[in-house]
């Protein structure tokens, strides 16, 4: 079973994302900011990460840069999931190593479409 780490400071978003991902067959773990997410990744690298941008503590971009520099950190597919919807911001996220980008608000269809594009769901 593929694993996905949901990183978001909103408990509601984490819950919605968890339900969508579990329906798609993922085993889901949650983190509420970048520091917690890095701890998860050090313990067990997930197959995919759904990553919010603005979070207290370590934000999504900082987390992504550290993840990509860490051993094995190039392996997870990272999908940013943020209210940021300016083209420049999206480009910045992709340049920092994100594989895909979702603009909030999102639904199950959008998440499934992005994961399918990345070859993680049929």
């Amino acid at each position: 079973m593929l694993t996905c780490l949901v990183v978001d400071d909103s408990r509601v978003i984490r819950k919605v994302s968890r339900r969508i991902l579990e329906d798609l067959g993922f085993e889901v773990a949650e983190a509420s900011d970048g520091v917690e997410a890095l701890a998860w990744c050090n313990a067990m690298m997930p197959d995919a990460i759904l990553l919010d941008w603005r979070m207290p503590g370590m934000d999504g971009l900082e987390f992504l840069r550290r993840l990509r520099a860490a051993p094995g950190g190039d392996r997870p597919k990272v999908i940013f999931c943020s209210v940021e919807n300016e083209i420049e911001r999206i480009r910045e996220a992709l340049d920092a190593g994100a594989d895909e980008y979702i603009m909030k608000p999102f639904d199950g269809g959008i998440v499934a479409g992005k994961l399918s594009y990345l070859g993680m769901v049929a």
Binding site: N85, I87, I90, R91, L94, Y101, M103, G109, I110, G113
Partner: peptide, 14 residues
């Protein structure tokens, strides 16, 4: 915003 997230890869969007 919804439409550009239906099937369009983010790299194509930017």
């Amino acid at each position: 915003q919804f439409e550009v997230q239906c099937g369009l890869p983010a790299r194509m969007l930017v």
